[in-house]
Design a protein around this nucleic acid. Sequence first.
DNA 1: CTAGTTTACTTGACTAATCAAGTGATTGTG
DNA 2: CACAATCACTTGATTAGTCAAGTAAACTAG
Lengths: 147, 147
Amino acid sequence: MRNNTMGSLIWLRLMRFANQSNQLSNEFLKRFDLTTAQFDVLAQIQVYQPITQSELAEKVVVTQGGISRMLARLEKESYIVRKQEWKTKTISLTEKAQAVLEEALPAQLMFQSSFFEDVLTKEEEKQLYKLITRVHKHSQQKKFPPE
Amino acid sequence: MRNNTMGSLIWLRLMRFANQSNQLSNEFLKRFDLTTAQFDVLAQIQVYQPITQSELAEKVVVTQGGISRMLARLEKESYIVRKQEWKTKTISLTEKAQAVLEEALPAQLMFQSSFFEDVLTKEEEKQLYKLITRVHKHSQQKKFPPE
DNA sequence: CTAGTTTACTTGACTAATCAAGTGATTGTG
DNA sequence: CACAATCACTTGATTAGTCAAGTAAACTAG
């Protein structure tokens, strides 16, 4: 019926795994009162602060509108401050966010790693990273799929 | 600064790729007037119809509430019909959905495959599938992360 | 036969995203 | 100098999902 190709099988697996691990990550981060999306944004800000909204949007691969809303939420929870500077808004972390990240970041890195370390050898991890990186980079070139 | 582990690097790549390819898939399916999520649900119904809502929710890994809303949308667009049977609602595809899928399904399978076929050898595809399957299965066991 | 439990589904409040249209400074250019 | 274009950001409408509380049918006692 559905003569699945190898590629479509990989795709399904990948999507289901991404979904699943995202949910588990949300569950995990609940103890820090964060969602995966919020953590991702805060971690990027920490690395690149001070940063403008549009730059940040690019880093986390979200539209301008998306980042605007996300930052509005994060500001309401006083994780970040936005300073109007010229026409640009410059974003940086508050003490609160800094403190939360200090705990959450290493924990989350461990958590993420555990998905792979528990079942793959060092060699296999490297192999997987190599393959997924190649696939990812290729997909970025793909921007405009042929009609 | 961020002493990233191999695992956390893989995770980031995987998530960004899942995100990216999901967006591209949405763009691709626009010609059929479908989103990736809708396509996924319709394809599952096609395989398993007639099926109940709760069974379907499990297949596509979404909550009861989520599937309820999704099916309400699909019904409004008359892609599916829901027949109350006892206390259960049995779902099946309409002619319209059947016709759309006939075109969309092979196209989408091709599209998904192209992410991998273009950059990996047959051998590497098998390797990637093996690794991601192991990782995915492991994540399903993981259901309740340790406190 | 009525009361309580379970099952299947819905719904309200929320997070997170998209697109497209709108706002409001800053920067050309005639 | 004024008008248009551009840039950075916001916002309304919509899709897609979550959780938790609610409804209604169908079983399961006492």
